[in-house]
Design a protein around this nucleic acid. Structure first.
Lengths: 174, 174
DNA sequence: TCTTGACATGTTATAGTATAACATACATAG
DNA sequence: CTATGTATGTTATACTATAACATGTCAAGA
């Protein structure tokens, strides 16, 4: 049952950053992202195999951060392997190729909503509804690079995560 | 055997941010930090009990990020409890009270080198020597707040972590 | 003084997250 | 067609974290 609860807040859709936490039908965002993911994979010479593609679809359908074991459970129910490495490998692939992100605070993974746009996003995690939005973080990244440079440290990868309340849950007084 | 390898890079000492990755004797930083931690605890009306204090000392002695089970092992060898909650509770206390930080990328904990200075630090993690430095991150934090505000998101806590190479390891061609 | 309540520590048990190591399949270049 | 690299699948295990309950400690108020 794909995207069964569109009335929920639906963060991080590709359409517009401002719409990240706004209610909207995201079926098209998913298709959109998936199409771009395929193109990107072809372009980079890596293979978006059935498991990998299916994992990305699952992340897009749920439209929130999922634990590896959540993903695994869905895979297993669809005839794929049912052991942890199956999920972890597909997720690692997606992360490695910029098609998904790892949210360390949640021990979870979320589809990247802006694949190919070479971004170092910040993640805004709502502690009430658990939804995760990618915030444009170029200035953040820049400030971080600067701070690191001052110490002679060369950043290779970084993750920036914030916990708080999304607009909807603030309104609801959560 | 406290701080047994001072010839290593020794990041994050309180003396000066610039010295974070420089070689130096840090026995005094530890004492320094510990003293400030005690003062801070008294001031905040919370108790730096023997286990908690010992855990902080262990983090300071090692002067790097330690897993909860690493800490536990040392506690157990000193007559404290040897079950995970003993370590986790002390570590959580320290984090909660600004005396230590949790490094999610490493599933590890490190003593805060600037207790009481109300900072939202960025962590620079060297992938070669595994040392962690706290970088001053006020501008980073500001940029992040700004990005979140644009989406109507209210940040409560955040963590900023970067993986890369520290000056020493860059030099060593690691 | 007694006792009550809050907090800290300790223990048992279990849940949740992740990877090592090896076996099998499958595509594709030579 | 076969050798090679890559992907998938499986078994087993390691690592990280918390729930739930028992015991101990200390200080404030009866």
């Amino acid at each position: 049952m794909p995207h069964a609860h569109h009335s929920d807040a639906c963060p991080g859709c590709a359409a517009a950053p401002q719409a990240a936490f706004a209610r909207h039908d995201h079926s098209h965002c998913s298709g959109d992202v998936l199409a771009r993911a395929e193109a990107l994979a072809a372009e980079q010479g890596v293979k978006l195999t059935p498991v990998r593609r299916r994992v990305l679809e699952i992340l897009l359908e749920e439209h929130r951060a999922l634990g590896a074991y959540d993903v695994l459970q869905r895979l297993a129910g669809e005839g794929f392997g049912n052991q942890p490495p199956v999920a972890y490998r597909a997720l690692d692939f997606l992360v490695e190729n910029g098609l998904a992100h790892r949210i360390r605070r949640l021990n979870a993974f979320a589809a990247c909503m802006h694949p190919g746009e070479a971004h170092a996003p910040a993640f805004l995690i709502c502690r009430a509804c658990n939804h995760v939005a990618e915030a444009p973080a170029a200035p953040v990244r820049e400030a971080l690079d600067h701070a690191a440079a001052a110490l002679g440290f060369a950043i290779e990868r970084s993750n920036i995560e914030a916990l708080g309340l999304c607009p909807a849950c603030r309104g609801a007084g959560a």
